[in-house]
Each structure stands twice: as structure tokens, then as C-alpha cells.
Simulated scan of single mutants.
Amino acid sequence: MPKALTIGGKSFDWGSRTYIMGVLNVTPDSFSDGGKFATVDAAIAQAIQMVRSGVDIIDIGGESTKPGATPVDEATELARVLPVIEGMRQHPDTQHIPISIDTTKASVARSAIEAGADIINDVSGGQFDERMFETVAQLGVPYVLMHMRGTSATMQQMTEYDDVVGEILAFFEMQIDRAVNAGIDRAKIILDPGIGFAKQYQQSIEIIRHLDRFEILDLPLLVGVSRKSFIGKILNQPDPERRLWGTSAACCAAIARGADILRVHDVAEMVDVSRVADAMFRN
């Protein structure tokens, strides 16, 4: 695995510790915090709080990817994310923090990077926009490649696997080859197995139990378990905001199995979880 990757001027030294990516949804319909940060002022205030809590990257998304979410057009997505990126780059408390743009659209990714974002987080893994890999290669930025099947509307009907981890591995191998052939630097790819995306709750647990199988690909691993439905299923807790302790347990398990980055809503709490887990599970 590459020893380090520079994102927004910050060095990420893989294996040294767990890095925290904070979720900043600037949408009205995200599954756990929809509408809370839909104004620029609220979003920047949340970003400042994340920075003070020890976040390493802030991931800004302008289109919900929850099951059944309504797609939005490019103009709507840009109107949501660009003012927040620009505002963060102008604010002294957030101007230094690496920014990730959570999008499946190449045009949105390009505009966000030009506005000051540093890394592209694509939940489709290059499947939704045929221009994505070419765009990432031209921009020369790091890229999070996630596994999913179908779309937000259809993914929960596409959960049949013979070997869920093995099939995700095969998908990664195929998409990494496509990305590299398009000109993306392999050392700038980060993999995300897509917990909850076209996976039943038992499959999400299986993926976390066997994250170490992805080590064969020799790339850093991002894991997003925060507040997700498999935790709600285990706890019989329908309210995503009341899944903090379950999220903590899942994050700890992910670190024990080799996660390099955790994508989370509750930054301060997961910074503490990762520090303790790192002391236990990392050299």
C-alpha cells in the first residue's frame, strides 16, 4: 500500500492511525440529518465544530444517496455545495481542512475541485457517469471508489450475493483497472466497500468482519458505518440519531479489521473511539 497520500496539503500516513472524515450533508433529505445544514451559515458552523473536534477531512454532499432518495440535477447540486466549499475556504477556522466532494457527477466534481475541494468521493465507483474517471485523471486528485449496485431507488432490491466480500473484491479489481487505464494514479485511489448500499444488514456485518480480505488490493480503506440501518436493526432503534453507541462499536470493529478512514456524523465521539482503538489494534 502507498505509505502516504497528500490531500489538501495534509499528509495521510496509512497505517499510522485512523483518520476521521466528517459528514456534512447540505441536503433537505439525508437519512439522519436531512435539512439541519441546508443553509450555508449552518453548514459552515457545523464544519467549524468538526474542525474543533479533530476531524481530518470534511465530506460535503449535495444529493442524498439514501434508499429511495429523489435524484437532483446538476444545477441544484452545485447550488447546494459550491457556496459551502467557497465559504469554508474563506473562513479562518476551516480554510486549511481537506474537503471531499460527495458526488457521482463528473461536472459537479470538477466545479467543486475548482472551488477548493481536494478529493472526490463517488458512491457509484465510476458507474453513473462515464466521464468520471477521465475527469478525476485530468484533475489529478485523490478518488474514493465505492461499491454499490443499482441506484438509490433500486439498490435495496439488488442484495443477492454468493460471496459478498468476494464479489466486492472483483468489482474493485475491475473498476481499479478501468480507473488506471483512464489515467488515474493508482496510489490516489481509496476503496470503500459501501456498507448498506445494496447490502442487507447481515451482509454489512459480514463485510466488517472480513475487511482484512481487502488488504490484497494494497490500497487504503474507507468505511462508513455511521448511524446506518444495520446498526438500527441490531439495536431495534429506528432513529438514526440514537445509534451513537452502536456506531462506536462498529467503528471499533472496522479499525480492528484494518479501516484507514472512518466516515462519521459524530466527529468528537469517533475521534475518541479511534484513538483508543488505535492504541489497541495498531503497532
Rank of each mutant, 00 (worst) to 15 (best):
G61N: 05
A4R: 04
T27G: 03
T27W: 05
F31D: 14
I261C: 01
P220Q: 11
L139D: 06
P2T: 13
F281D: 10
A109Y: 05
R17Y: 10
M132K: 03
A42I: 12
D260V: 11
I184K: 00
I85L: 04
V51D: 07
R227Q: 07
A137D: 12
F214G: 00
D33N: 13
R243K: 06
R110W: 07
A115H: 08
T70E: 15
I48G: 01
F12W: 06
R209L: 12
M270E: 09
F172P: 01
I176F: 06
F171E: 05
T94I: 12
H91A: 07
I58H: 00
Q156C: 05
A109Q: 03
I189V: 10
V55T: 04
H265N: 05
H265I: 10
G126V: 13
T103W: 07
P71G: 04
S30R: 00
G166Y: 10
I60V: 12
V144D: 02
F128N: 03
G62F: 11
F281Y: 14
W14S: 03
G34A: 12
A253N: 08
M21E: 07
T247C: 08
R227P: 03
D266C: 13
D272M: 13
R213L: 10
V84R: 01
E241Y: 14
A182G: 12
D13M: 14
M132I: 14
D93A: 08
